[in-house]
Every structure is written in C-alpha cells, then in structure tokens.
Nucleic acid binder design. Structure first.
Ligand SMILES: Nc1nc2c(ncn2[C@H]2C[C@H](O)[C@@H](COP(=O)(O)OP(=O)(O)OP(=O)(O)O)O2)c(=O)[nH]1
Ligand SMILES: [Mg+2]
Ligand SMILES: [Mg+2]
Ligand SMILES: [Zn+2]
Length: 573
DNA sequence: GCCGTTTTCGGCCCGACTGTTTTCAGTCG
C-alpha cells in the first residue's frame, strides 16, 4: 500500500516542529507546515500523482526542494532530514508542544536547561518547582503548565464534529444574545466555514462597551475555566473541555473582524499579502491606507478594497478562491434550498425508525419533491436487510402511498450491498423493478487497493447500478477510508452514467470536500443524501450541503437539485 | 523553503493576552 497523504503530512509537521524547536528560520518552518496542510488537503495521494508523472511543484507552496522530499518519502518511506533532526534532538519533544501554553521556544529551553523530554519529565519538574526557576518562567506559569499536562492526559484532545459543536453553540448564543448592548453576534471560524470538525467555537460580537459582553460571557453557566479574559478577546473552556473564543469589536469593524475571525488563517494571510501589495493594511479593525480606515463595516467592503468580490466562507481555505475571485470565476455554490429530494433513507422495514409514509411526509414538509426509500438488502442481517419478497411488499406499499400523495413522489430504491466479488446482493430481476439503486460496501474493508477498486468497478458494470453510497467508508475520528483508487472509480462512474454520494451524516460526510471538488473536475455529479434512519435525520442535509459547498459544487453539480423529470433522465444508463 | 504587475534576493500578516518583565518575549487567535 502506498504511503497515505496524512503520513506524508505528519512527517512534514514533525519536521516543522523540530526545526522550530531548533530555532530555525520561522519562514522555513512555515513552509513545512504549509506543505503538510497542502498534502493532506489533496484528493489524490501524492504517491499516485508521482506515478502519473505529475510535477508536484505545481502545488502551492511546494517548490523544488519539498517536491524532492515528497518523492523521497514516497519511494523510501523515510525522510533523511527528519532522521538527521532526531539525531540532534529527541523526536518526542514535539509531544510537549501539545501542552497549551508551550511553544517551541519554551520546549527548547526546558530541554536544554532541565533535560525535559517527555510529559512525565515535565510533570516531575513542575511538581518539584524546578520549572519556576527558569528565567522567564514563574510560579504562575509552572502551575498552569502542570494543570495543562494533567488535562492533556485526562481530556481527549480530538476535534469535535460540526453537529456536536452546533449543540454547544445554541444555548451559548442564546446566553450571549441577552448581554446588554450587543449588536451583531455570529459564530465565525471553522464553524462558519462548515468544516467537518472544529477545534473550538469562535464567536464574534459587536458592542459599544465590549467589557459588558465579555463579563457576561465568562459568567455562562457551562464555563468550567476562564483561560483568558481581556477587553476584546476571551477564551473559556466548557465543562466538556470544549473551547470557546469570543472576540468583541466596535460596529465599524464588524466586517473586517468577521473576515479575520472566519479565516482560515492561510486565507487571511493571502488577502493580507494582497493588501500589502496595494500599499494597504488589513487587520481585524479594518482596511487602512496610512492611518485612515477605508473599509471595515462589512465583509463586502473589505474584499472590495482588494478589488475582489465577496468570497463565501466555505471557500476560504486558500485553495484557489482568491485567484478565482480575482478572475471572476468563483462558483455559485449549491444551497440547501436547491435540494429537491433525498435519495437515500431507511424505514422501519429494516433498521430505520419510522414508516415509509412518515418519512415521506417529513420530506415533503422540508419542501422536497421526491424521496427515495433505500432500505438495506438481504445480506445485512443485523439491519434486517430485505429479502426479495419483503422488497416487493415495500414496492406495493409505495405504489399505494404515491396514489395518495400530491406534488410528491416516493421513489422505490434499495441500498444494495456490494458483495466481495463485486456482484450486487439482489438478482437483476428484482433490482430492475426499482426506480434507482444505491450501492454500497459494508464488509471486507481490508481488501487491497486493487481488489477493492475492482470490486466497485465490477459492481458499476451491473446496468442497475446508479449511486455509490458513502464511497470511502470513513467514519470521522473512528475509521479510516478503505483503500480505493478514487480516480479510477470516478472516471468509471462518469463514463457509465453512475453517480457518487455525498453521505450527509455528520459522522460520515463521505465524499468529503476534496473529493467533491475532484468529482466536479471530472464532470461527475454528486448526490447529497442523508441516509436518514428517522424523520429528524433528514435535517442532516445541511451538513451535506455544507461539505458540497466546501467542495466548490454548484447546484448543477448536485444530482438531487434536479426536478423529478430531469432526475429520471439522468438516472437512465 | 517559497516566490515574483516593483523583485531571482529579500522579503514573508497582524494583533491580543499573559506573566514576568522594567520594556517585552512567548504563545495564541
Ligand atoms: N491573520 C491571522 N488570523 C488568524 C491566525 N490564527 C487564527 N486566525 C484567525 C483565522 C481563524 O479561522 C480564526 C479562528 O482561529 P482558530 O484557531 O479557532 O482556527 P479555525 O476556527 O479556523 O479552525 P479550528 O477548527 O478552530 O482549528 O482566527 C493568524 O495567525 N493570523
Ligand atoms: Mg476555531
Ligand atoms: Mg479559536
Ligand atoms: Zn444507508
């Protein structure tokens, strides 16, 4: 198996940390960090890109040197530079940088002066009071570090699913809304960019007297600890350990502050660089020419001073959106309101909670025009997968229901299991009675890349194959994607009139944003489906659309933004 | 280490909060 991108990225991150601890040029450090980010954001593995003979220096932030290093990692599985570095200083020092409040400088000094290499060394030094004796360190710093070391062991430091963060956000926003003098109040950061996971909530408020909001903020019931509490910025930890940052600025700075706090950091740097070229300065208070503020009240104003149209937050990752804005080629992103129906839901025929009719009515209430019932097929016994007989019953029931529904159609579908050899789990004469077939893998995740890919390609060769559901099988933070040649799969799908799903379940979001963009570039439409197992789950659509938007998809790129007639045409193979 | 509507060398985004400091370094957003 070729080395996955996240392993390449991890090597570059480690190199960046070690170079920083060594006190190397910070911009060289940044170059490695950026390279790590670029590589992990690719939809194809660098190993494949190299095999295709692609020139990696075309990637942003990758020059001759880094391209060579990627090649070294791919071909040898190792990086000499990293090995040299770990000869000079212990590799485990990078673990210490995970302690909040410890950066490269402090880690370096603790190692040089106290020979601290591990979290255990650090805890002991702090407990024995040796840390406070270092110049520039004091009692408070020592206590704080000790607490953070303990926290690191106790709390998980994982990123939080967007949907979970939304649950934290709602009551907190209600609380903040009640503060005296609050004008604007909005969640920015990765949450606003609709990333699949977030590290924290970044909330922006405008207010005449900022300190009132700040004081109100830190008094929130759920706050376990106030990490910092300033005039314009505060950070707290909620009981769960989840972090929330609040930034308060005057109203004239709302737009500039929103741009700043929405990020991403690389996007901010990119537009600030542009500003510098124009002899302007951008910060969170506005756009300045000399000492004069020339913009800041709205985001549009800020982008306008740079000669750019407003850029949707979902795109602000410095993945080409600034250049697209400049050339006037930004996509008109798909919106929730474009979605005409859901093509993958379950019912109580298998492991769903509600009846066909309940699901249909709930879908209609969301403004949809159609809904595809796609229960599991027979092999999935744990989910009471449907045998042909049960499926025929369901088909009849749907026919009867459709007679009663007005302006809405329930489509007959199945989530048919793709067997290990690429056959589908139901005979063709059963499949052909359905309006569409959603096909997916639920077993044998460990096949080799070639075998797994062939399995899916063979399945697509069945003329009844329509949609590949949750194509990579990943579960965010739980299970990696199975090894697949997504390039071949997408090309095969496009060539054979098949589609790939973007499963909108917050734990799946599969295809992810990068794969969506890859699909779009291959002219392959994506189907955004919730895989709902109960009526409420239909609301997951918003997360799917968020991911689609991050993947630069327009309504046209999303199959279920079509009306029923066009949908049926497009499903025909 | 990367990169170029000033540049192939010399820049690289800009500011808040904290602690320990007598003027700012370090970390973080
Ligand atoms: N200009 C500038 N802005 C930054 C920098 N670091 C962070 N920001 C801005 C952009 C970020 O999106 C925003 C919030 O910072 P966070 O650390 O919370 O990052 P973000 O929310 O993007 O991702 P996260 O999911 O929290 O890891 O603050 C920086 O170094 N420079
Ligand atoms: Mg954040
Ligand atoms: Mg933050
Ligand atoms: Zn399903």
């Amino acid at each position: 198996m070729p080395i996955p991108n996240h392993d390449v990225a991890a090597i570059f991150s480690k190199v960046a940390d070690l170079l920083e601890i060594k006190g190397e040029n910070p911009f060289r450090v940044r170059a490695y960090r950026e390279a790590a980010r670029t590589v992990s954001g690719l939809s194809q593995s660098v190993a494949d890109l190299l095999k295709e003979g692609r020139d990696l220096t075309e990637l942003p932030g990758i020059g001759k040197d880094l391209a060579g290093k990627i090649e070294e990692i791919v071909t040898t599985g190792r990086l000499t530079l990293l090995e040299d570095l770990t000869q000079q200083i212990p590799g485990e020092l990078t673990e210490l940088m995970k302690v909040a409040g410890l950066g490269a400088k402090r880690v370096a000094r603790m190692y040089q002066e106290l020979n601290i290499r591990s979290l255990d060394d650090l805890r002991q030094a702090a407990e024995q009071g040796r840390l406070a004796e270092l110049e520039g360190f004091g009692d408070k710093t020592q206590t704080k570090i000790l607490e953070e070391v303990k926290r690191l062991r106790r709390d998980q430091t994982h990123r939080t699913l967007l949907a979970i963060a939304a649950q934290y956000a709602q009551p907190l926003m209600d609380h903040l809304g009640k503060a005296k003098g609050v004008k604007d109040l909005i969640i920015a950061g990765s949450y606003r960019r609709r990333r699949e996971t977030v590290h924290d909530l970044d909330i922006l408020a405008t207010c005449k007297r900022g300190s009132t909001v700040m004081d109100h903020f830190v008094k929130y019931d759920e706050v376990k600890e106030v990490v910092s509490h300033g005039k314009t910025r505060s950070t707290v930890l909620l009981r769960s350990g989840f972090q929330v940052d609040l930034r308060v600025v005057p109203q004239v700075s709302y737009g500039a502050a929103l741009v700043y706090f929405t990020g991403s950091k690389p996007h901010n740097i990119a537009i600030r660089k542009r500003a510098v070229r124009k002899k302007l300065k951008i910060n969170e208070y506005g756009v300045f020419r000399g000492n004069g503020r020339i913009a800041g009240r709205t985001e549009e104003e800020v982008y306008d001073t740079l000669g750019l149209p407003w850029i949707p937050p979902d795109l602000r990752e410095n993945r080409g959106e600034v250049e697209a804005a400049e050339q006037g080629t930004l996509p008109t992103l798909v919106e929730l309101g474009d979605i005409q129906g859901d093509l993958h839901v379950h019912t109580n025929y298998t492991d769903g909670r509600h009846t066909i009719e309940q699901m249909a009515r709930a879908a209609q209430k969301r403004g949809y025009k159609y809904l595809a019932i796609a229960d599991h097929s027979q092999r999935i016994t744990v989910a009471h997968g449907l045998m042909p007989k049960a499926l025929r019953e369901q088909i009849e029931q749907i026919d009867r229901l459709n007679d009663r529904l007005k302006g809405f159609v329930v489509l007959k579908a199945i989530e048919v299991d793709i067997l290990a050899d690429g056959r589908l789990d139901l005979p063709d004469e059963v499949l052909k009675e359905l309006d569409l077939r959603v096909c997916s893998i639920h077993s044998k995740f460990n096949l080799s890349r070639t075998e797994q890919t062939e399995r899916v390609l063979r399945a697509m060769d069945n003329p009844y194959f329509n949609i590949l559901a949750h194509p990579t099988g990943r579960l965010i933070g739980e299970r990696d994607a199975y090894d697949l040649d997504m390039e071949r799969i997408m090309e095969h799908a496009a060539a054979n009139g098949c589609y790939l799903e973007l499963n909108a379940h917050p734990e799946r979001l599969d295809l992810d944003d990068n794969h969506c963009r890859m699909a779009k570039n291959k002219g392959l439409k994506v189907v955004v489906s919730t895989d709902a197992h109960r009526m409420d789950d239909l609301a997951y659509m918003v997360y799917g659309v968020g991911q689609a938007r991050r993947g630069w998809l327009e309504a046209d790129d999303v199959l279920n933004s079509r009306n029923l007639k066009d949908l049926r045409t497009l499903l025909r193979r």
